[in-house]
């Protein structure tokens, strides 16, 4: 199918700023779904609130645009009632890990079969550039005019420690890797987390003098490296890209079904 068959064309051109990384995630996700050959009506996309969350409105899957930070809660209900559907939950870093942090760690711990995509632009884009738990130390934001003194989460480490059974990271620059990782994450049975480092040129880029979208993408290329590369050994500050966790554990809906069966049989 063509790209246009996966989108709701009536909402285009979309609302995102010129060069917003979230648009590249939209692009990559469409290609991942196309390559997998999954039917549109086999996918439910559940999002919260944020620039990132608007991605759900642009895609012609079953979609739900819910509450800030609560997308995983809604998604859990959908998955438990219709486990045959593929559930994809795109979230901003604030959505996933500030207000939604608790939903995030518990969805990971339960290993419920869904794909969480964290579109990490290290800022609250939609509300005007407040710092997020991913901004990190020394970052300028509208709520940190003299720079942030908060340390940031490491999404990969957090997801892995919380129990996610597939954990990966890539960037908006590394589009081919993004497409591959999203495919694998969607196929993985269990809770999958894909962090996509994304650029918000409007708030993060401008305020932190990282320049426009092109400059921000070049920066991502420079500060990341494949997992275990030689460059990483020489420059430990580089951020690794690739698959960090890939393991099998009982999936939540299946485990729950087993319990229901046992209860019915009375043993």
């Amino acid at each position: 199918m063509a790209v246009k068959d996966y989108i709701r064309e009536r909402f285009f051109p979309h609302i995102w700023c010129p060069g917003c990384g979230h648009g590249i995630v939209l692009n990559g996700l469409i290609r991942a779904v196309e390559k997998l050959g999954v039917q549109k009506n086999e996918i439910v996309m559940v999002s919260g609130i944020g620039c990132s969350a608007r991605i759900a409105g642009y895609l012609d899957f079953h979609t739900m645009h819910t509450l800030h930070g609560r997308a995983l809660g809604f998604a859990t209900g959908i998955k438990l009632s219709r486990p045959e559907l593929k559930v994809i939950v795109p979230m901003g870093d604030g959505d996933a890990l500030a207000i939604g942090g608790n939903h995030f760690i518990h969805a990971a711990r339960r290993n419920i079969d869904m794909t969480a995509i964290v579109m990490n632009n290290r800022i609250y884009g939609m509300t005007g550039g407040q710092y997020s738990p991913l901004s990190g130390y020394g970052i300028l934001a509208s709520t940190a005019p003299y720079t942030s003194v908060d340390q940031s989460f490491d999404i990969v480490q957090l997801a892995a420690a919380a129990g996610a059974t597939f954990v990966a990271r890539t960037t908006a620059y590394h589009i081919q890797q993004m497409i591959e990782l999203l495919q694998e994450a969607i196929l993985h049975k269990g809770f999958s987390v894909v962090e996509v480092m994304s650029q918000c040129p409007t708030y993060f880029g401008r305020r932190n003098r990282e320049g426009d979208a092109v400059a921000m993408l070049k920066h991502m290329q420079k500060i990341t490296t494949p997992i275990g590369s030689k460059a990483k050994a020489e420059h430990p500050e580089l951020i690794e890209r690739g698959v960090f966790v890939r393991k099998e554990l009982p999936e939540y809906c299946e485990a729950y079904d087993t319990i229901i069966r046992r209860a019915k049989e009375g043993k």
């Binding site: 790209v3 989108i7 285009f12 648009g23 590249i24 692009n27 990559g28 589009i175 081919q176 979208a213």
Partner: peptide, 13 residues
């Protein structure tokens, strides 16, 4: 097709 895949606006094919 890298230009097509990286376009945030799905504007190039």
């Amino acid at each position: 097709k890298l230009c097509e895949m990286r376009c945030p606006d799905l504007a190039i094919e």
